[in-house]
Each structure stands twice: as structure tokens, then as C-alpha cells.
Design a protein around this nucleic acid. Sequence first.
DNA 1: CTCCATGCATGAGTCCAGCACATGCTTGTC
DNA 2: GACAAGCATGTGCTGGACTCATGCATGGAG
Lengths: 282, 282
Amino acid sequence: MELQQLRYVLAVAETRNFTRAAQQCFVVQSALSHQVRKLGTPLFARSSRRVELTPAGEAFLPWARNSLDAAERAAAEATAAVGVVSGTLTIGLIPTVTALDIPALVRRLHEAHPEVNVRLRVGASDELVAAVREDEIDLAVLGLAQGIIPEGVEHRVLAEEALVAVVPEEHPLARRGTVDLAELAEEPFADFATGSPGRAQSDRAFRTAGLVRRDPYEASTAQLIGELVCAGLAVALLPAPFAPTHGARTLTVRSGPHRTVHLVWNAFQPSSAARAALRLLP
Amino acid sequence: MELQQLRYVLAVAETRNFTRAAQQCFVVQSALSHQVRKLGTPLFARSSRRVELTPAGEAFLPWARNSLDAAERAAAEATAAVGVVSGTLTIGLIPTVTALDIPALVRRLHEAHPEVNVRLRVGASDELVAAVREDEIDLAVLGLAQGIIPEGVEHRVLAEEALVAVVPEEHPLARRGTVDLAELAEEPFADFATGSPGRAQSDRAFRTAGLVRRDPYEASTAQLIGELVCAGLAVALLPAPFAPTHGARTLTVRSGPHRTVHLVWNAFQPSSAARAALRLLP
DNA sequence: CTCCATGCATGAGTCCAGCACATGCTTGTC
DNA sequence: GACAAGCATGTGCTGGACTCATGCATGGAG
């Protein structure tokens, strides 16, 4: 078996199409047909116009990925040992990162270690922690409600951020500079989806204050929540940089919720690129 | 990069000699020189008649192994999915296995799954548990003092075995059929090395009975301990099948120590060969 | 139903990567 | 200093990986 064959199998499994996989690999389709067949066990079922993985293929795939990743990692660790950090660095981010200037970080990384290939992946905080634990990503920058610490991974606190209240311009509270959580609890609310870590932050804030608010409108992004507020439909709690700049007012919340921005990584065999990034980060 | 190159690197790293590594790989020496060089980073230092790993080589090696193992595993899992269990199955054993007929097990495994390559590895119980945890071996059969359960791995109890007292033929106790631990504590003792799991069994037995025995002679194998007894130098506690058949007497110990024979394996992604072996075992 | 597009398999031909061979170079040993 | 061990290097060759041409199956359009 050779890694080339594994690359072909992965390409076919991804595209579910020999022809496109071949293009992706810069060879003709028959090259893949030959090499895949040479593996012996049939990994793909050509059922009527569609290529599907057989059970054997399903069993094969994760180990093929594993093998290719390990080979890449071998090369990266070797060059790192002679001072040239290389390899792929996958960073996970929540959509509402503010504590860190990501483009600047990427630039600095690239300047310090031009051989490192940076990938960014956006997701919810809990997904990112899981991905770090499963070694799918090297690092993650994420926000958690105060007092919650990510489990099963190494972490470092980057910042502590207050959430601000956002209310429609014509709202009675709009003239005020600060509000209490209790006042917000009376209002129709817009928030992240139930179960998301963003939602957990405000839920927790109201709960610890002993307040019960009405079920909020749910939206998946800070942007959408902001638009709901601007439309006059609700008030919201958002990280300050994500408060809408027009069409809404931003208020400080007295003893209001904070979120903690964590840098998270896997302590078990972090890649040389990950170690380099950690050295570069505050 | 191709797996062939990784195989060459491993062979050179093992033999620390290009020529012998080449023979092992069934190619000429220059083939290895070329392929290793093509990896780019110098992995070996040719320091005066000896090939040594550079730091880059040290960093490269474990990932190269990882990659090759994963590739092998991919093939094994694929064939397993179509009903042909294959791959390498490494079984760890303590030197004093008695609860299981290992040759018979290997024969049955080979008959049921001729494509499986069985390897046996002998070691102390605690080493084997660690090896299972580190995924170096698939299964292990080992004995632990009663009440001790292996941690971080899956296990199944195979048997509960009493340890018997072994005394020299001309010893005053030799005429008796049973003895108390208290009587044995008075005698000069032969036992496994301090810190070994075998030693832990008798240590624990005396301790829980509230007895203090003299520091025992230490030997590394049950065989040697038996010889010390036969020579009239000491008494011992051994698994019954390892009591010497000549030159010593075997006595039952009243409420004496037992050891529990465990079958141990790693719950996280056991190989198809390991799963097959587990199905075959009691 | 026919025709055609899509898409994988297969066989023959081509070309280059990996190998063998020959040889050179360094180092350690007697 | 002669010799042996052992890796590097250059050259030519060969097998395997690729391309190309073509066949074959399926599904959709008319």
C-alpha cells in the first residue's frame, strides 16, 4: 500500500465521483480506478450513477486519514526539529471573536513561520472544545460564560468581556446610559438559539440574578439579533463590538453578565505549529 | 511522501545501518540512500562509522510508525468489514499464565482467522496494563492481587487462583497438608522482586493478615523461586502450577492469598483482530 | 422506446521514478 | 599504510503508474 492510493481513496470518498476526484488529484480518471482496485477490498459501490462507500470503505476511511495525517505530521515535526516550523495549523474561532485580532495573528504567524499553512474554522464554543479534544483542530479561541472552564483540554484566559444591552432607538430605555438586568427581563428579548454557548451566557446571567425573562426570539448570529433589535422587536445582550452601530442604542448593564474569552488547545502531543502559535500568542 | 520511504526510515532507524536495513527491505543500499535523502530533512547523522538519528529523525520516527500502523490498520479494518479478519494481534502475557491454554488459543485463532498475525509478548502485569493503555498491545492476560482492578482499560475476570505454599522437603512443615500465613511469616521467604505485581500479591496477603515477615530473597521468575525452595533456603507462595514438582512440598494456605487472572484490552477503537479474539475467548 | 449524457471499467501503450550496479569517498583498524 | 566497512553518487534499466482510447451501464429527455 502507498500513500498515493490513500489520497485517491479520500478524494473519491469526498467527491463521491471518480472523475472529479481524479481532477482534484491532477490525474485522469482511470488512474484512480486502477489504484483503488489494487487495494483489493472493494471500498466503493458503483450503484446506479452514484459512488457510495461500502462498509469496508467506511471502515477504511478514518484510518486512511489517520495515516496521511501522521505522515504529514512526521514531515512537519522533522522540519520543526531543524528550526523550520511547518505543517497545517487549524484554528477554531467563534463568530464573535473580539479579544484577538485574528487577521493580525495570521499575518504574524505567516511572517514568523512562512511554511505553516493556516486554516480557520468557525463554530460554536462547545463544538470547538470538542474539536480540540478530538484533535481535529489545533487551537481555538472561544467565549464561555463566567466561571465555566473548558474540560479535557488546556486553556488560557485571554480576556474578560462585559456584554452590553442593545435596545431599539425609540425604546423607553434608549435614553438611559445603564440598565439593570431586572429591567431587561421585562422586555421582549432576542438571543442565540437554545442550547448554544452564546445563549447559555445570558440564560445564566438571568438565572443567577434570580430573574425569569420571557422566551426570547432566537437567531443564529449576532448580526441577526442586532437586526431584530433595530427593527424594534426586542432588546438583546451582545458582546460590545457586535452591537449594531446604527438603529439601536447600547447600554451598560449594572452588574451584568461577562464572558471569558479562552484560548484552548490539546495538551496531548500538540503539533509543532500549534506550539509555535502558542508561543506567539499573548 | 510515500509509505515506502517511511518503511526505509524505520528500517535504518532500527538497524542503525543502511546496508543491513537495505537487506531487510530486499533492496540494495543505494535505494535507501536515495529515498531517505528525498525526504529533504536530514534524519540521520553519519557520525564516524555509525548511523545516528538526528533530532529531526527522533521527531520524525514516531509519526512515521503511526502512519504505517494506520495504513495497515486501514487494510485490516476493510477486510474485516467483508468478513475476513486480518492484521496483527499482539497479546501480552505474564510469565505465569495458567488460567488459559495459550497455545490452544493461538491455534483456535489461527483456524478461525487465518489472516491474523499473532504476536506474543511477555511482561509483568503492570507493564502489560500500561502497554494496553498505550495501544502497544491489543490484549493482555495478567494476574493481580485480589481486589485490585486494572485502571484505564477494559477487563474481564478469567479466573480466581489460590496461591499455594511451597516448602523444602525436609522442612518441619513439609508433613502438613495446610498451613497458616502466620506460620509462613516466621520462615525465610523467597519472592518476586520488590515492586513487581507478583510480589505485591504476597505482600498484600501478609499485610492484610496483620503479619510482618522477614525481607524475602528476591528472584525474577517463579522457576528461580522454586529452585531456592528446593535448595532448602526458603519457603514461598506461588501459583499452584508453578510449584516445583520435585524437591519441594506444596501446602494449602488457610484463608491464604488469591490472585485474579484478568483479560485486559483497550476499549478505545480495538482492532478487528482484537474484537475477534475477544469473541473467541471465554 | 430511442438517443444521449454521464461516469466507471478495461486494455494497450508510454514514460518516468525507483532500483541495481559500479564506483568513489570517508573513517576506523591493524 | 594497507585494508575493510559503510555511505554517497552517477548511470543505465525496468516495472509500475499514468495516459489514452474505448467499452459498458445507467438514467433522463423527447
